[in-house]
Design a protein around this nucleic acid. Structure first.
Lengths: 332, 332
DNA sequence: GGCGCATTTGATAGCGCAACCGTTAGCGCT
DNA sequence: AGCGCTAACGGTTGCGCTATCAAATGCGCC
């Protein structure tokens, strides 16, 4: 372990004041090229790493953007992150990730932890938070962007799609294709509010044509190809007359497709399938599955742009609604 | 945006000294239950979030563990993270993620950034770093654990498997199954050193039985089912006599399997497939694909344990080698 | 040479909080 | 009552760095 080098040690070695060394390390102006190079050289030689904690306290600026997401297991949130990173790449800001596990209490903790580091901005997935979390976000002394979803009441800025609308649109598309014996498969994540909204929109839109779900299968836990496969098997066993199943996620619909492949069920002739997210997973399969793209990458980019635009100024709250893009593929 | 509440404001509101308020907020001892509750209540009411920057500077302790990974796109590193989180859950430490994009220069940046926050510990994926990064890690005033891989020269602590060995073992298994016309498909990520080591071990072990690869296909970019599908198609077109293909990742072998499904190629009769990682993705497919489990979750857990054990003490460097676990499945 | 201006450097004063003691209050005991 | 002891609280100091402004230096030009 190191010898705990301080800025003053570097300054002494370089024969300059602490202040000049500080400026040189930060690449600030008002330092001659010669002294800057000298200080940088010495710092590199002795392996000095500035103490950002002290720096942040003194300057009251932290070049971090907190990003709070429910999970990193699916590729859904990593894609949002990629979008954020791509936009921040050219700036001095860096994303810091917090994971809540779809748990609102844990989310509160994570948000408190993030805010306690006084970041330049915060991005939070979803609009549903507990009272304490909402209050903290509302009081936060930095721009706050809620992402993914616009169906609700944003604390401040917001970028996302309407999941209600996405569900409705898929229902309409399925109905238009002529299917009437329709089922639903999803994981029963009590706090996956977006999946819930899609389900709600889906059922609503079916109802408007006088159609209702003839069966559904819910599962507590994480979505995976395996659960999609299993749940589909169970559903079909119980209700073999199903013509079409809507899944709360593409991983589930892929699992269903795998089930169909192994049982010789023809898609979409015997059974039509539709998922959600337009995951990369869908590409490279023998059949293109129906899905809805939620513009995850762009959502990340836009959120980062909003933070950049509001880091000093404090303009009005901005709500940006993107249009989910449905792809029929070959499975409907 | 908030009014910038300070500890002293809370103290004033609660009618206690700053010091007592501080202790109450941190749940420290030497505070009566009554005052603690009062302070907590007031803090919650006004939405006070302590400034950790100041706290960290004053106490010289930061309850963060930096985790540096190349990517979050596959589920490989998120699983390591899950392992880390699970172990840290019961402690005061929290993981902070940094992503390098398989770029050593970017890795240096990310490591510098992490260390500048003086974390309690650092976990870094891989053993290959540039000179500056190695130096920083070596000088870091906290435990450092390199994970995933043990083939190399660790800076300090290390937990992982031998990827050379994993490649060798798969080669031996494939040879034992009688295949001789063997190909390889991988993405040409110049800095995915672990994939490279598996390839090297694989080719070496083939060579020891006098067998050599009859063809291979490399691709620059990210691994995906789609690229696995495409690369397999290209490889088979060029070298139709192939009996078995080893892939640098399960996503590629799944892509290959998808190709086989759509072309009516029987696995493993017409073509045997083997991947690496034992991703969750493999479960729920019609056929179990051969793979090697790299114990990602456990690696994360062990790394976190090492950090916990060394956060105060500074014991000897510890190298923990786990045994990769090969599964033949039904594709060999 | 001396003046004015721009550039570079340095001394001082915190940033917001917690460690470190010192102080006070509370309580049981002789 | 007086003593000792512990629990609870508070004042002072400083963590390592940067903002701010003052000082010094260099430099062009009359």
């Amino acid at each position: 372990m190191g010898k705990k080098l301080l800025l003053k040690d570097i300054a002494k070695l370089a024969g300059v004041s602490e202040m000049t060394a500080s400026r040189a390390m930060r690449g600030a102006q008002d330092v001659s090229a010669a002294t800057r190079l000298k200080v940088e050289q010495i710092a590199r030689d002795v392996g000095y790493v500035p103490n950002r904690i002290a720096g942040a306290l003194a300057s009251k600026t932290v070049n971090l953007v907190g990003v709070v997401v429910p999970s990193l297991n699916s590729s859904v949130f990593p894609e949002v992150l990629s979008g954020i990173s791509s936009t921040l790449k050219t700036t001095a800001l860096k994303p810091v990730i917090g994971v809540t596990g779809y748990d609102l209490l844990e989310e509160e903790e994570v948000i408190r932890e993030m805010l306690s580091w006084r970041p330049t901005g915060v991005v939070v997935a979803g609009l549903e938070h507990n009272e304490a979390a909402r209050k903290m976000l509302a009081n936060a002394d930095c721009p706050v962007v809620e992402v993914m979803d616009v169906d609700g009441d944003p604390v401040k800025h917001c970028v996302g799609i309407s999941h209600l609308e996405a569900g409705r649109e898929m229902a309409q598309t399925i109905l238009k294709s002529g299917y009437r014996k329709i089922g639903f498969v999803g994981t029963k994540m009590p706090q996956d509010f977006r999946a819930e909204k899609r389900f709600k929109g889906f059922v609503e839109a079916l109802g408007e044509t006088g159609v209702s779900l003839i069966d559904q299968e819910l599962y507590s836990g994480v979505s995976s190809i395996e659960t999609g496969n299993m749940l589909t098997e169970m559903l079909l066993k119980r209700t073999p007359e199903l013509e079409c199943i809507y899944f709360s996620s593409d991983v589930l619909s892929v699992g269903a497709y795998m089930h169909c492949l192994s049982k010789g069920i023809s898609v979409p002739d015997d059974l039509a399938l539709a998922g959600f997210n337009n995951l990369e997973l869908l590409r490279g399969l023998p059949l293109k599955l129906a899905t809805t793209d939620a513009h995850r990458y762009m959502i990340g980019q836009k959120a980062a742009e909003i933070i950049l635009a509001n880091q000093d100024t404090n303009s009005l709250a901005q709500v940006m609604t993107l249009q989910p893009q449905l792809t029929t593929g070959q499975s409907l």
